[in-house]
């Protein structure tokens, strides 16, 4: 069993190339420890989602990815799912399930062939619905929920796996600021209890505010890895996103925040 300081996720080297494409993903050493909140940022096409999918085992990869000391590709998927939760971008269902039904699917790694629940499973469902603040939505159809509520239902579904590592691909995409903040606050609460959270986001300000560690990606590689004030710098951001972004400091936390730069000609 890993101790508290040993990494939950450990990668020495990771390479991937999509079939019939020249684009390559390649990164060197990466370790994620218990309780860390890590944001992966970068422009479109920089490899953020690919990185997450490789860790989740959704994309096949020959390089070893260690999860609590075990190679993911040599473990049964059902066993891996007890440790690793993965929420892809824009999850949606073909059918109009009730919220509780979606959440309950997260217990799959623990249930038998018929998928029936015992008392512990039911307690876990109640617990994760309380954590994600969706208890009152349990019998509502997914089509009756707002975008923010739906995201929290899917988050609860992944938390029902009782993972120690949570991978989230743009979970607050298209949500209003209130729901974005609410969602990240839930993640931070989980991280305080030891969950390792790795989240892909396009929102640099949310990443800076909520995540203690940020990975900046560009053209398939990690070009910076560190605290927000080490990664979100003029030079790094210009390298990844071009020079249209202005940096400032959050008036309360002092962490870096970004704004669009005023075009000199337009002004």
């Amino acid at each position: 069993m890993p101790n508290e300081t040993s990494p939950r996720v450990s990668i020495e080297r990771l390479r991937y190339r999509y079939p019939q494409s020249d684009w390559r993903f390649e990164t060197s050493e990466f370790h994620a420890r218990a309780g860390e909140t890590i944001a992966i940022i970068g422009p479109n096409g920089s490899g953020k989602s690919t990185f997450l999918k490789l860790i989740a085992g959704v994309l096949p990869c020959g390089d070893p990815i260690m999860l609590d000391g075990q190679r993911i590709d040599r473990s049964r998927r059902r066993e891996t799912a007890r440790t690793l939760g993965y929420l892809p971008q824009d999850p949606h269902s073909e059918y109009d399930y009730r919220a509780l039904e979606i959440v309950s699917l997260g217990r799959y790694p623990y249930t038998g062939p018929g998928g029936f629940f015992d008392e512990h499973d039911c307690r876990v469902l109640d617990d994760v619905m309380a954590k994600t603040e969706i208890e009152t939505l349990r019998d509502r159809r997914m089509s009756q929920l707002s975008g923010g509520e739906r995201r929290r239902v899917f988050l609860a579904s992944v938390l029902a796996q009782e993972p120690s590592v949570l991978l989230l691909d743009e979970p607050t995409n298209a949500l209003d600021p209130h729901h974005q903040i609410r969602f990240f606050n839930i993640l931070i609460e989980q991280a305080k209890q030891g969950l390792t959270v790795i989240v892909v986001t396009h929102d640099l300000n949310l990443a800076s505010h909520f995540c203690e560690r940020i990975l900046l990606m560009h053209q398939g590689s990690v070009i910076a890895d560190g605290r927000a004030d080490e990664v979100i710098t003029e030079a790094r951001i210009a390298q990844a996103y071009g020079d249209g972004i202005l940096l400032a400091r959050h008036p309360q936390t002092g962490r870096p925040v970004v704004f669009p730069k005023q075009d000199a000609e337009a002004s």
Partner: peptide
């Protein structure tokens, strides 16, 4: 019915 990636995330082969 939730899609291939989420099914894999839940542990489905």
């Amino acid at each position: 019915t939730l899609g291939r990636e989420l099914a894999m995330g839940h542990g489905v082969d």
